[in-house]
């Protein structure tokens, strides 16, 4: 079986009117297996979102390759997207659809066979506890309710690969914890999950392996225990700061 997510030497350079060339991602490589949560931990502007967008085929890499379930992001973007669910704080729901219509739409459009759609939607409504407001329009729902619908829509077609880009941004503690719980459940179901965050505790709690991203590069990539052993620090926060400063010292020229 092919590795669910495989990223090799991926780079992305933006050209910005004001800043000129922006190297958002530089030669990033990692893999993520089924039943694993792989964390991208980095500060603002580290290049997490850019990496994940390339995986979701919204952006094209400047160089390097990435594949999802053996499909290359450049060669077969549609096949890649059929295999993944993508959720981020910027992917919104259609305000004028009801929760049920939303799930129905995303299941169909992602290639769920038409005769299975109804059963799948019913299952999702049941599982995420959306039943009470399934026929209300999304724009009338509270933030927490929306969050549940968004999670259900991400897995509407039961994809083997899930990508979460800072999913807990803007949620209160209860909802954030709920979200972490659900993501852990997805792992138990055997999905390959990439999870990006800038919150140390979240990464510590949830991720099987953590990549520390700084200015577009991965500076360390291991299990928490491995990172601790390598740096001699216990807290992830200190581990992060240590590898970030070490990186800055190593390549002072890079912006």
């Amino acid at each position: 079986m092919s590795i669910p997510i495989r990223v090799q030497q991926l780079s992305k350079t933006f050209f910005d009117e004001g800043r000129g060339e922006v190297h958002a991602v530089r030669e990033v490589s990692f893999e993520c297996a089924a039943g694993e949560i792989f964390g991208l931990l980095g500060a603002n502007g580290a290049g997490k979102t850019t990496t994940l967008r390339i995986l979701a085929t919204i952006l094209k890499p400047t160089s390097g390759t990435a594949s999802v379930m053996g499909h290359d992001v450049l060669e077969e973007p549609e096949a890649v997207r059929r295999q993944l669910g993508f959720s981020s704080s910027t992917t919104a729901l259609y305000p004028r659809l009801t929760a049920r219509e939303t799930l129905d739409f995303f299941a169909r459009i992602n290639g769920c066979p038409p005769h299975q759609v109804k059963a799948r939607v019913d299952y999702l409504i049941e599982r995420f506890g959306i039943g009470d407001y399934a026929s209300a329009r999304v724009d009338k729902l509270s933030q927490g309710m929306k969050q549940k619908v968004a999670l259900a829509r991400t897995v509407a077609h039961d994809p083997p690969v899930l990508i979460f880009d800072e999913p807990t941004v803007g949620l209160d503690v209860l909802n954030a914890v709920e979200m972490q719980k659900v993501i852990a459940e997805f792992r138990a179901e055997g999905k390959a999950i990439i999870f990006s965050t800038h919150i140390m505790s979240e990464a510590e709690k949830l991720c099987d392996r953590i990549a520390i991203v700084h200015r577009g590069r991965i500076h360390a990539c291991d299990t928490l225990a491995g990172l601790r052993a390598a740096t001699g620090e216990h807290y992830l926060e200190n581990i992060f700061i240590k590898s970030a400063t070490a990186a800055a010292a190593a390549s002072p020229g890079e912006p």
Binding site: I58, E78, F86, T91, L93, I109, H157
Partner: peptide, 14 residues
């Protein structure tokens, strides 16, 4: 503007 386009673009639709 509403942010739904990114959602749509990550679906399997071409």
């Amino acid at each position: 503007e509403r942010g739904t386009l990114e959602t749509l673009l990550t679906t399997a639709a071409s």
